[in-house]
């Protein structure tokens, strides 16, 4: 079914393309949201990625690769967008991405806030790697494929992303103590 839609979309059938992406859009949006932590920017990134996907769809030879290809486009656009965000140093509104904590949720609100602040301090590529690994469950080989880097580099970057996150959380904890907040 998807193969037919991909082929039709590659021949210029716009309706087929929309049929193809609509069922995937929630998942893709979630990825963008996790990296960018801002609903408006995530929506923009998703739209940009999907328009580029339409533009370049004829280059997709294997329809089975559609999902991986879309994720790769999206993650790269999110990294670029996150880089712009850092340069502009804008104050982004906090993201209600996780919604209210579930009853069985083991993370406290304070933990969540601290993770949010720590995550936002990370460089965009480290954010993306953490999302690929912890949100999508990617191993280093899949991360490497998505980001177009060697697997060894992906492993190294994942390690450094964890270290950076740890450092960010520790820095946040120190600030909390100094500022009178309890973490």
């Amino acid at each position: 079914m998807d193969h037919d839609l991909v082929r039709a979309a590659q021949r210029g059938d716009q309706a087929a393309f929309i049929d193809l992406i609509r069922p995937r859009s929630d998942r893709l949006f979630a990825i963008a949201l996790q990296i960018l932590r801002d609903i408006d920017r995530a929506e923009d990134a998703l739209q940009d990625a999907l328009v580029i996907a339409w533009r370049d769809l004829r280059g997709l030879r294997d329809p089975d690769r559609l999902d991986a290809w879309l994720r790769r486009l999206l993650v790269n656009i999110c990294i670029r967008e996150a880089s712009r965000e850092r340069r502009r140093a804008v104050n982004l509104r906090m993201l209600p991405v996780d919604g209210p904590a579930a009853a069985d949720d083991l993370l406290s609100i304070a933990d969540r806030d601290q993770l949010e602040r720590g995550f936002r301090r990370l460089p965009p590529d480290q954010r993306a790697i953490l999302v690929l690994h912890h949100f999508l469950g990617y191993a280093s080989t899949e991360i490497a494929e998505t980001l177009g880097i060697p697997p060894a580099t992906a492993r190294s970057r994942l390690y450094h992303a964890h270290r950076a996150m740890r450092a960010a959380l520790e820095a946040d904890a120190r600030l909390s103590i100094v500022g009178g907040r309890s973490a």
Binding site: E43, L46, L106, L107, L115, L130, F135
Partner: peptide, 14 residues
């Protein structure tokens, strides 16, 4: 912590 934090919640695009 990251595994828990990134646990997927229903997210719907407009």
């Amino acid at each position: 912590l990251l595994d828990r934090w990134f646990t997927e919640r229903p997210t719907q695009v407009a």
